[in-house]
Design a protein around this nucleic acid. Sequence first.
RNA 1: GGAGAGGUGGCCGAGUGGUUGAAGGCGCUAGUCUCGAAAACUAGUAUAGUCGUAAGGCUAUCGAGGGUUCGAAUCCCUCCCUCUCCGCCA
Length: 422
Amino acid sequence: MLDIKFIREHAEIVKEGVTRKGEDPARVDEALALDEKRRHKLAHAEQLKARKNSVSAEVAKKKSKGEDATAVFEEMRKVADEIKSLDHELAAIEADLRNVLLAIPNIPHPSVPVGRTPEENQIVATWGEPPVIDFKPKPHWELVEKLGIIDFPRGVKITGAGFPVYVGKGAKLERALINFFLDKAEAAGYTEVMPPHVVNAASATGTGQLPDKEDQMYVATKDEFYLIPTAEVPVTNFYRDEILGEKQLPIKMCAYTPCFRREAGSYGKDVRGLNRVHQFDKVELVKFVHPSTSYDELESLRADAERLLQKLGLHYHVLLMCSGDLGFTQTKKYDLEVWSIGQQKWLEVSSCSNFESYQARRMNIRFKPAAGGKPEIVHTLNGSALALPRIVAAIIENYQTPEGKVIVPKVLHQYTGFEVIG
RNA sequence: GGAGAGGUGGCCGAGUGGUUGAAGGCGCUAGUCUCGAAAACUAGUAUAGUCGUAAGGCUAUCGAGGGUUCGAAUCCCUCCCUCUCCGCCA
C-alpha cells in the first residue's frame, strides 16, 4: 500500500497515477477523508489519555503519603469510559482506512508508457530468430503424448485438469531445468532458499494476494493456509516486520517452488497442454534493495532472466508493460515472451517487476540508514527465472525433429544426462 | 494429540497493581586515556503515531486481543508461539 503521508502531501500525483493505471481515483479522496477524521479523533483521545496519566501519577503520590484520593475516581471513571469508546471508534476508522489504502494501487513509474490494453505494451528488445525448419511443426501436447513424457489424462485422474504428470525423460528434463536455473541464479549472486509451500494469511496479505486475489489461491481451510501461487509470497515475507542493515542491501534470493493457481475465470483461454496449468514449477528471483537503486536492480533482474533464455537458445522478446496492464502492486514491469513454433505464438515465461515500497510497507520491511536516522522502507522486486512449463513447451516445440524427437539444448546435457528425447 | 513450563528492549535478564519505556549486564556508537590498540572510565543507544517551522511535547507498545481497576508488564479470559516429557510419525 502507499504511505498515507505521501498521499496527504501528494494527493494530485497519486490520483493521476491511479488514473493512469485505469483505477478509480475517488478512493484517494476517501482515504484522505478517513485520515482527517482519524487524526481528529486521535487528538481527542490522546488528550484524555494524557489527563488520565497525570491524574494516575497524582493518585500514586497521594497514596504513598497515605492521603485519600477517592475524590477524582468518579471523574476518572467517566474519562476511562470516554477513552474506551473513542478507541473503539478509532479502531473502526483505522480499519476502514487500511482497507481503502489496500484498494489504492501502486502508481506507475514515469518511464512506463500510458495505455490501457495489452496491445499498448511496448516491445523493447528481441533476441534470436525463430527456428528454421522445413516441416510442419507440431504443438507440444502432441509431441509429449507420443513421447510419453508428460501424461495429462492420468493427471486428470489423480487430481484434475491442469495437473500434468511428468514421466521419465519429461520428469528429468523438468528437474534439469530447475537445477540449471538455480545454478545460474546462484552464480549471479542470489542466495537459494527453500521456503514453505503453504503460507498463512498475513504472508498472503503482505505480497498482495489477499484480499484481492483470494480466488486465485487454493486454501487449506482447516488451518487457514494458502498454497503459494509463486515463491514470491514466502520469500518476500522472509523479512516481514524486520529492520535490515543498509550494508546488507541489496539482498538477492532465489527459490524453486511448485506454484498453485486456481486460474478461476480463465477457462478456455490458452489452456491446451502446458500453456496454463494449476500446478507448475518455477524458479523465482527476489530482491530487497535500497530505494535509490531499485530501477537499476530491475534492469539487472531482467538481464538475469534473459540470460537463461539466451543460453537455452530460445527466441524471445521483452515487453515493457503499459500503465493499464501493470499489476495492482507494480510500478514497472517487463514480461519475457518466448516464441513457440508449434503453436506459432509467444508464451510468457517471465515477469520482472519493481514494487518500490508498496509490498514492503505492507510487510513492514525496513532498513536502518548507515548514516543514522529513521529506518526507511526497502524496495522489493521479483522476477521469474523462469516459469517451467512454458519453457518446456517452447523447448519441445522449437527443438523438435521431423521424426517427432526432441533435441535437448546443450546447456542442459550435464543436467539431463541425455541429448535427445525419443 | 496428552501433561507441564514459559513468552519483557539488538541479546541475556530483573520486575506480581502506582512517576517502570521498563533495574542490572552484554552488545553497539561517541568521547576521555594511548604513539596506536586493548582495558578502564564517561555519555548515548527502541519503534510507531500525532502536534509543532523547529526545539520539543503528547500518546501507544513488556507475544496478540479482550476484561477487571482511578491506575496493569504485574490480576482474569481467549488465542498464538516456544521449550520439556509422553504418544504418534516421514
